[in-house]
Design a protein around this nucleic acid. Structure first.
Lengths: 356, 356
DNA sequence: CCCGGGAACTGAAAGCTTTCAAGTGAGATC
DNA sequence: GATCTCACTTGAAAGCTTTCAGTTCCCGGG
C-alpha cells in the first residue's frame, strides 16, 4: 500500500500539500490539486487511519457499550448508530457488558487508547460513570448515555419518555375498567425501570386507585423474570385482572405463565408490555405494548455524539423520544361486569397478600 | 495520559526496556521490571493502541461484516465473535451491508487502513471476494468467511452442515407420511440456500418422490418472502401438506399465510423452519426448526481468525458445524390417512400447477 | 588474569500523518 | 521599478510505540 510520501513524489509536491488536498485544510491551486488526486487514483492510496489518529489525537471510531446484543431490543439501537456513523465515515466498535459493571469498566479502559471520537453507553447499572468518562471528555471524546442514565449523569443523553409511556398504558387499562392492576418491573436501580413504575403509579393515583406494593414485582428484564413474577401475582387475592410489564420480554414470560395456569389472555387477564419488539406481533394473542424506536435511539445518540465532536462547547443536550401505545389483542375489559363501574373515586381498601 | 517516555524516565530505564517489560519481548531483570511495572501502576499508563498498531502493522481489532444486525439470526453470531475477541484482548468493529455488495466493498475498503488483525465476513452475495480480501491477506490480516461462501472462496471458513439439516427435516416430514412437500428457499445465489435445497431434494429423491420445480419457491430470507410464497403454494393442486422453510423468518411468514387462509398448522399443513431462533418457541403453534448455533458460528470464526494471525501458514481450515432437528408443535402427519401408506416407491406422476 | 560469550539493556530509526512556522512567488500599489 | 500583500507551498517536527543493531556487563573457562 502506498503512503503519502509516495503520493507526494508521484505528484511532485510536498507531503504537506498532499495532506492539504486530501483534507481541504488549505487552498491548493487546481493543477497541483489534480496532480495529487491523480496520483491517489493511480495508486489507490488510502491514508492510514492509525497514523492519522495518532497525529490528530482522535480516530473516526465510535464506540458503543451495550448490555447484550442478544437482547432483541438492542440490535435496533446498534443499527441506528451504525447507520449514522457509517454515513459520516465513522466505524462502530461494539462492546457487550452483560450488565456487569466490571466488564463495563474494562471496556471503558481498553477502548480509551483507540481514541474514539465518541462513546455511546447504555449503562450497566446505577454506578456513577462520571469518573470513568471524564478521561474521555478530557481526551476530546464525546460521551453520550442512552436508554437509562447512571447516577449523577450530567452529560449528553438520549432517553425515551418512560413515565408517559407507562402512564398511558396503565391509564388505558384503567379505562377498560380494570381496578386490580399489577406491574412487573425490571431492576429498580435502572432509571428506565424506575420511570416506568412511576408512570404506572401515577396513573393509578390519578384514577384514585390504591397502590399496593405487593402488586409491583421487581425482577430482571427477561422472559424468566416475567414468568416467575407472574406466577406469584396469579396467586394473589384478589388476582390482578391486568398486568403492566415493564418490557416485552417480561410480558412474554407473563404470557407463558398465564397460559400455563390455564388462564386466558385477554379474557381473564390483560397484558401490556413495553418496547414494541417484533415478537409482540407473532405471539398468540398479539401483545399490546408501549412502542419505542430503538433505531431512533441509536441514531440520535450517534448524531449527538458527532455533533458534540464538532461543537465541543455547545450546551449539554438531553433528547427525550416519544413512545406510542400499540394496542393489540392482549387487552380486554376485566371479566367481572361490575368492574365497568364509573371511574370516579373507586377507592376500596383491599389487602393484596400472596396466598400461602 | 502518560506515555512510554515518561514511564521510562520514572523508572530510570530506556524506552526499549519499558517496551520489553510490557510485551515480554526480552528478558528484563526483576528489579528493573518491578520499577517499570510500578511506574505503570502509579501513572495508570496505557500504551497507545494507535502508535502500537502503526508500528506493528496490525491492531487488536477484529472487523465483522454482516448483512444486518436486525435480522434475529445475526446477534448471536456477533456475540459469539465478540466474546472470543474480548477474551483475547481484541475489539470488534461491526459493519452492516444490507446484502448490498457495494456497501460490502465500501466497508472492506474503509476498514483496511485500521489494520485489523482479522476480518470475519458473511458475504452479501455470490460476488467473488478474492480480490478484495487479497489485500488484507497481504497486509497480514486473517480473513474468515462464515455462514455462506463467496464464489471461489479458498480461505478459512466456518459454515454449518446445511445439506444434512435440510435432509433430516425433510426426511422427518416424509417419515410422517407426507408426499406433497414444498420448500421455500432464500436467494439461490447464496450457498446456504443452495445447500438447503439440495438437502431437501436429496431427501425426496431417496424416498422416491418426484421433485416438481413449482414446489420449490425462491424468495428473500424474511417474513414477507415466506408469506408471499406460501400464498402461492397454497393455491397449487395438489396443495402441499408440508412446507420446509429455509429459515425461520420464512417459516414465520408461512405460518401467517396459512393462518390467513383459514388452514390449520399442523393439522392441514406441517411446517419446519431452519435456524432455531428464539421466536420459534413463542409462536402458536411452536415452530419446528433445524437448529444451529449462531453463537458458536461467530465464536469459531473469531477463534479461527485469531489462530490464523498466530499461525500464518498453517493449512486452510473449513469448519462445518452440526445442526439439530428440533421438532415442536408445527408438524403432524398429513390430513388424509392414505398418505400413511408405506414409503417404498411411492411414485406417482402429478403436475404441480399454480391455480389460475 | 584475560578473553569469549551470552544475557541484559540502550539508542535510534521507522512507521505515516497533521500542522505550523517559514519560505516562495506573483500580482498589486504607489 | 521597488515594496507590500496575500495566496500557495514547503520542510520539519510531533505524536507514540516497536524493533534491531549495538553496547555494557558479568561470569566462566582457559
Amino acid at each position: 500500500m502506498a503512503n503519502m510520501k509516495q503520493i507526494a513524489e508521484l505528484a511532485g509536491v510536498s507531503l504537506g500539500t498532499v495532506s492539504h488536498v486530501l483534507n481541504g485544510t488549505a487552498g491548493v491551486r487546481e493543477p497541483l490539486r489534480q496532480r495529487v488526486l491523480d496520483a491517489v487514483r493511480v495508486t489507490g492510496y488510502q491514508p492510514s487511519q492509525l497514523a492519522r489518529g495518532l497525529r490528530r489525537d482522535k480516530t473516526n471510531i465510535l464506540a458503543m457499550i451495550i448490555p447484550d446484543i442478544l437482547n432483541p431490543f438492542f440490535p435496533g439501537v446498534v443499527r441506528g448508530a451504525e447507520d449514522v456513523a457509517f454515513a459520516k465515515g465513522y466505524r462502530l466498535v461494539l462492546c457487550n457488558t452483560d450488565n456487569d459493571h466490571g466488564k463495563e469498566v474494562m471496556h471503558l479502559n481498553a477502548l480509551r487508547t483507540y481514541l474514539p471520537s465518541g462513546l455511546i453507553v447504555i449503562p450497566s447499572d446505577f454506578s456513577d460513570l462520571t469518573a470513568q468518562t471524564e478521561s474521555y471528555r478530557q481526551a476530546g471524546s464525546a460521551v453520550v448515555c442512552i436508554d437509562r442514565l447512571p447516577r449523577n449523569w450530567d452529560g449528553d443523553s438520549v432517553t425515551i419518555n418512560n413515565v408517559d409511556g407507562a402512564f398511558n398504558a396503565t391509564s388505558y387499562l384503567i379505562g377498560l375498567g380494570h381496578r386490580d392492576l399489577a406491574a412487573i418491573t425490571g431492576p429498580l436501580h435502572l432509571t428506565n425501570a424506575q420511570d416506568r413504575v412511576r408512570g404506572f403509579k401515577r396513573a393509578l393515583r390519578r384514577a384514585g386507585l390504591e397502590i399496593s406494593p405487593n402488586y409491583i414485582q421487581e425482577t430482571t428484564f427477561d422472559r424468566a423474570g416475567g414468568y416467575a413474577k407472574t406466577k406469584i401475582l396469579l396467586k394473589m387475592l384478589p388476582r390482578p385482572t391486568a398486568i403492566f410489564a415493564c418490557n416485552d420480554l417480561i410480558a412474554l414470560g407473563a404470557l407463558l405463565a398465564i397460559r400455563e395456569e390455564k388462564l386466558r389472555c385477554p379474557e381473564d387477564i390483560s397484558l401490556i408490555g413495553f418496547d414494541g419488539l417484533d415478537l409482540t406481533e407473532t405471539t398468540t394473542p398479539q401483545l399490546s405494548s408501549v412502542y419505542q424506536s430503538p433505531y431512533q435511539l441509536g441514531a440520535e445518540a450517534a448524531q449527538l455524539a458527532l455533533d458534540r465532536v464538532a461543537q465541543k462547547n455547545s450546551p449539554v443536550k438531553h433528547i427525550v423520544l416519544r413512545t406510542e401505545l400499540r394496542i393489540r389483542e392482549s387487552v380486554a375489559p376485566p371479566p367481572n361486569a361490575q368492574a365497568a363501574a364509573p371511574l370516579i373515586s373507586v377507592k376500596k381498601s383491599r389487602a393484596a397478600v400472596p396466598q400461602a
